[in-house]
C-alpha cells in the first residue's frame, strides 16, 4: 500500500511569505532597513545646514538634479520617493496586520500586572503611529511648504529656520526624533533577528550597533533645531 504522502502543491513563495507571521515580519525588517538607510543619508544631508545657506541650498538643488545628464530633472528623486513610499506602505500594512493578530492571540489580560519588556519594545506600535503622523507633518512643512511660516520655494535653508523658530515646530520635531531613536533601538536589533542574522555570539554587537545608530540619528537630527534655537545657525 502506498504511503500517505503530501501531494498537494505548496502555495507560491510570495503567498507563503505574506501569509506567514515570520514572512510578514521579514517584509517589515527589509522595509525598515530601507527606511533606516534613507534616514542615515537624510541626517548627513541635514548637517550641511551648519555650513551656511549656500552649501545647504546647493545640496537641495543637487538632489533634484541627481543622475543628470542621464536622467531628466527630478527623475532620480522620484525613483527614491517611489521606493520609500513602497517601504512605508509595506512596513505599515504588515505592522497593522501583525498587531491585529497579536492582540487577538492574547484576548484576556493577566489580573496580576507587572511591567514587561523595555520601554523601546513596548512603544514600537505607538511610536510607529507617531512617526507616520510626523512624516505627514514634515512633508506638509518642508516639501509642499503648506504649513511652513516662510514657504519660500527653492530655499530650504530659510524654510528650516522658519520651522525651528516656532515652539510647535521644535516640539513636534524633537518628540518625533525621540520616537525615531526608540524605534531604531528595538527595530534594528529586531530586524536582524527576523532576517536570521542574530545569534548568541553576535547579540552584543547587534545591540551595540542598534543603540549607536539610534543615538547618532537622534543626535544628528536634533542638532539642527537646537542650533537654530541657540542661534548657532541663523
Amino acid at each position: 500500500m502506498a504511503l500517505a504522502t503530501r501531494t498537494g502543491r505548496r502555495p507560491s513563495t510570495t503567498r507563503t511569505l505574506w501569509d506567514s507571521t515570520v514572512g510578514k515580519k521579514s517584509v517589515m525588517a527589509v522595509s525598515g532597513a530601507i527606511m533606516l538607510g534613507y534616514l542615515v543619508a537624510h541626517m548627513f544631508g541635514n548637517l550641511k545646514i551648519f555650513f551656511g545657506p549656500g552649501d545647504f541650498n546647493g545640496y537641495a538643488h543637487w538632489l533634484r538634479g541627481m543622475g543628470a545628464p542621464l536622467l531628466h530633472h527630478e527623475w532620480a528623486l522620484w525613483m527614491v520617493r517611489v521606493v520609500l513610499i513602497a517601504a512605508v506602505i509595506a512596513h505599515g500594512v504588515s505592522a497593522y496586520q501583525l498587531s491585529r493578530r497579536d492582540i487577538k492571540a492574547r484576548p484576556v489580560k493577566y489580573a496580576h500586572k507587572r511591567r514587561r519588556a523595555s520601554y523601546a519594545t513596548r512603544t514600537m506600535r505607538w511610536g510607529g503611529i507617531i512617526l507616520a503622523l510626523f512624516i505627514v507633518w514634515h512633508l506638509l512643512d518642508l516639501t509642499t511648504l503648506t504649513v511652513n511660516e516662510r514657504a519660500w520655494a527653492g530655499h530650504p535653508y530659510e524654510n528650516v529656520l522658519a520651522t525651528f523658530s516656532t515652539w510647535y515646530g521644535n516640539t513636534i520635531y524633537i518628540v518625533a526624533m525621540v520616537a525615531v531613536g526608540l524605534h531604531v533601538r528595538h527595530g534594528f536589533w529586531s530586524a536582524a533577528q527576523t532576517l536570521g542574522a542574530g545569534n548568541a555570539r553576535r547579540d552584543r554587537t547587534l545591540k551595540f550597533l542598534a543603540n549607536a545608530l539610534a543615538l547618532v540619528l537622534f543626535a544628528g537630527f536634533v542638532s539642527v533645531p537646537v542650533a537654530v534655537m541657540t542661534g548657532v545657525v541663523s
Binding site: 505548496r10 507563503t16 501583525l98 493578530r101 497579536d102 487577538k104 492574547r106 519588556a117 519594545t121 514600537m124
Partner: peptide, 24 residues
C-alpha cells in the same frame, strides 16, 4: 525544509501571535 515551513504554518493556523522580540 518541509519541517520548518509546515511547523510555522501550523503555528500560525493555530492562532498564536507573531514575534516582537520582547524576550519574555
Amino acid at each position: 525544509e518541509s519541517r520548518v515551513l509546515d511547523m510555522v504554518a501550523t503555528m500560525d493556523d493555530e492562532g498564536f501571535g507573531g514575534c516582537t522580540l520582547t524576550g519574555e
